[in-house]
């Protein structure tokens, strides 16, 4: 399967490519109150509303480093939609099977954690809202 890999707060994260709807840039994110720190806001993209999440903050509570012109990875799957702000997009990689981690092509031989959109969503849903 094709895996889309990005970096956030020092982690490499892989998401199966079939969940990637678009990579958006130059889209204004509208801030929203009463949400966790990792929740950056909302975007309305081609008729759909996306919650936009800073993945660095979600993973390690660290701010993304590319806030000047952030790319937003837009995910769409059968039960939801989500926009993710990475620190850096690494690229696509083909892997066999459904392994939990995979090696990223760099000198250090880093590994990426495979995540499903539902796993990211559940992590988000578990945070405190409205406080």
């Amino acid at each position: 399967m094709d895996i889309f890999i990005f970096e956030a707060a020092g982690h490499y994260i892989g998401i199966e490519a079939k969940y990637i709807y678009r990579i958006a840039d130059n889209v204004m994110i509208v801030p929203v109150p009463l949400v966790p720190a990792c929740y950056e806001g909302l975007i309305y993209y081609r008729g759909d509303l996306f919650d936009v999440i800073d993945m660095g903050r979600l993973m390690e509570n660290e701010t993304s480093t590319l806030h000047d012109d952030p790319y937003i990875i837009l995910l769409k799957w059968d039960t939801g939609k989500l926009g993710l702000i990475p620190d850096r997009i690494v690229g696509m990689k083909w892997v066999e099977g459904n392994g939990g981690t995979l090696t990223v092509f760099n000198k250090k031989g880093d590994t990426a954690n495979l995540m499903t959109p539902d796993e990211i969503w559940n992590k988000l849903a578990g945070l405190a809202y409205g406080t």
Binding site: V30, L34, D51, Y129
Partner: peptide
Amino acid sequence: AIPLGELLAKTGLFAGVGIMENGDISL
């Protein structure tokens, strides 16, 4: 007016999201 997503609904103070004619968003 479009319904709130599951996450924003948890904030408990908003009824929906409003999209303006120019595509801008309001709560």
